[in-house]
Design a protein around this nucleic acid. Structure first.
Lengths: 353, 353
DNA sequence: ATACTTTTCGTTAACGTACACGGAACGCAA
DNA sequence: TTGCGTTCCGTGTACGTTAACGAAAAGTAT
């Protein structure tokens, strides 16, 4: 096993001091072109890679991260999941000279998003994790980041060609395709399917529309589809709309393209509805409960904790100069969760805690 | 954001030098009882945790790891997967003062396992990753590790109360349960199921038996089960046995409790067999091909690369003294893979490469 | 030639930890 | 008193890197 080459090795071979090697490694100038070339050649020959531990240890300034994601103000427990991953990253990076600021907004209020973005002093950060729920509102902030050369990553929602160094999320359309496939396996005789979109003020992200599109695209013509939009900010909902829809006809398949499957399951179990194939998203406790009780058939999971964890780590590695500049788009696995395997997908399981 | 407390902070507060603090941290003695207590109290109050980067940087001796796992000598491509994870771990730990020795054996030959174990100079290693395919043969080696106080972890196969600091694998029985559930969804009319066990010399690990047990336990009495044992070391196989079995009766469900689903799929596609629900294990290329072509319906995945990666990292963290001594048993998720989500489960996806 | 600037490079003190070494203070025996 | 052995603790160097500082050499202007 070879010993790693260090800056000192290079310096010795080039007949210069470590200071000079450091200057060429960081392009800090003040080096003769000839010396520069000689050193670069040696570096390439030996395949030098910096020791990140030492680098982190000696870094003078600390790395400051801004994390801008929704919280559960709108009663959507999903957003705790990304926070779990971020907290794990914070814990792991506490050995390094790092610094985190968390900014929360209400995912069901564009104004809240705008206000929070306005309150973030971008220039005070070295890296930003952003969940750009509202595209238009995000663009201006993103421009600020780009002009200030601050690297940033997206989670959950993506914006193409925005200059972000990475994206961690799920292929929403494809997850809808998978939901359709699963439903086809469960429904054979009567093929009456209801799609239930629920949110506060009927704000449905592009993600949700993509899921529905994927579902509709793959479910096939021999299925009758009904689509329902429900405003959860009305306290009567979703029960009012669901009651009305189910009075008119009988459904044996329900697709809920966001976290709110448990709201339907609450309703269905209260009404004593049985033998319905219910497919929803995300492993929040409420959904897991209903999955285990049989009120939900499938949950699709996108490992939000892993996404945010990886996003932070990408930023960190980028700032340490390890990773190249090429953009990383990481589509999370679309986990198919049923009653029998749900217990193996907890955050605790993932983190070994 | 608070700055982390360092040894120096503690030394200053206790009015001693860092050398003394270091002595109490490592229980190296030569410290007055009174001073010892004073320092310990401060350490606990401030919640000091060592900086692992600095620790790794200053470590004199390098950490030596032995990795003892099967390779693909018996033509089982599965074993490349754990190696992927190990290679990733090696790459990540190359910044630290670490050293890896890989020992391979033939998973279908107990004698090969015994020979390899005999050739491993256990006392030369600080940590061992072992895949104890053959329990009896492993026990003696494990005893050596225990008496020499060398920490070790298992992957894939577990042995209870062996003294290992961790296990990373899958709940084999439960994966069989899930296979049964999936098959129930696909098969409705005729319920004729074939279980195909294949290996060289008919060596079927406890894992395989557990998978079959879980499957049988959950498939239900209204299914007719036939079980086949095939010795792949016979070049005529598996085609000979499969041909005979399928001549006698028609099956519409096939359960293959190990990596060899592609061997059946090869046969089935050559014979033009259609409309069979085939369930197998592991995302090796051959299986993925057949999954995409429709010759395999489901694959169950256990993320073998993640398992071995985590195993090495556990050993490393243990040796650095970060993790407590309590044993970690980590059951991998039982991923349900279909044609539509398989592309999101590659090693490349997992590692961001 | 003198003074002053620029280019180019070496030196050095950190970062937090491990560990060898040496030295002060004390006890005890001669 | 001297000599010697413990006990207890501080100092110093190292790990690989960063980055400030300063200094030598070379160039430029007067």
């Amino acid at each position: 096993m070879k010993k790693r080459v260090s800056i000192k090795d290079i310096a010795t071979l080039a007949g210069v001091s470590i200071g000079t090697v450091d200057r060429v490694l960081h392009n800090r100038g003040e080096v003769n072109a000839e010396t520069h070339n000689r050193i670069m050649q040696i570096i390439n020959e030996l395949g030098y890679t910096p020791n990140l531990q030492a680098k982190a240890l000696s870094m003078k300034k600390s790395l400051r991260f801004a994390v801008i994601i929704p919280d559960s103000q709108d009663n959507n427990p999903y957003w705790q999941k990304p926070m779990d991953g971020i907290n794990l990253a914070i814990a792991e990076l506490s050995n390094y000279n790092t610094n985190f600021n968390i900014f929360h907004f209400d995912a069901s209020s564009e104004q809240s998003f705008i206000n929070v973005l306005a309150s973030v002093p971008a220039n005070e950060f070295d890296g930003v994790l952003l969940c750009p729920v509202f595209k238009q509102a995000a663009l201006q902030f993103i421009q600020t980041l780009n002009t200030q050369q601050i690297p940033f990553v997206f989670i959950d929602v993506n914006i193409n060609n925005a200059g972000n160094i990475g994206y961690f999320g799920q292929d929403a359309f494809q997850s809808g395709v998978i939901a359709a496939r699963l439903m086809q396996k469960d429904i054979h005789t009567s093929r009456n399917v209801l799609i239930v979109k629920q949110s506060n003020h009927k704000i449905f992200s592009n993600h949700i529309e993509q899921r529905v599109a994927g579902f509709r695209n793959s479910i096939g013509n021999d299925y009758r589809i009904t689509e329902l939009e429900i405003d959860l900010s009305d306290p009567q909902e979703p029960n009012a709309s669901l009651g009305q829809a189910l009075k008119q006809q009988q459904f044996n398949g329900i697709f809920i393209p966001n976290t709110r499957a448990f709201r339907f399951a609450d309703f269905a179990s209260a009404q004593g509805l049985k033998n319905i194939c219910v497919i929803g998203y995300d492993l929040i406790d409420e959904n897991i409960d209903h999955l285990k009780k049989g009120n939900i058939s499938y949950l699709l999971n996108q490992r939000p904790d892993e996404q945010s964890y990886k996003a932070i780590m990408l930023l960190f590695n980028y700032l340490l100069g390890q990773k190249e500049i090429k953009q990383i788009d990481n589509y999370s696995p679309i986990d198919i969760i049923i009653k029998e395997n749900v217990d193996y997908y907890s955050h605790a399981n993932w983190t070994n805690k």
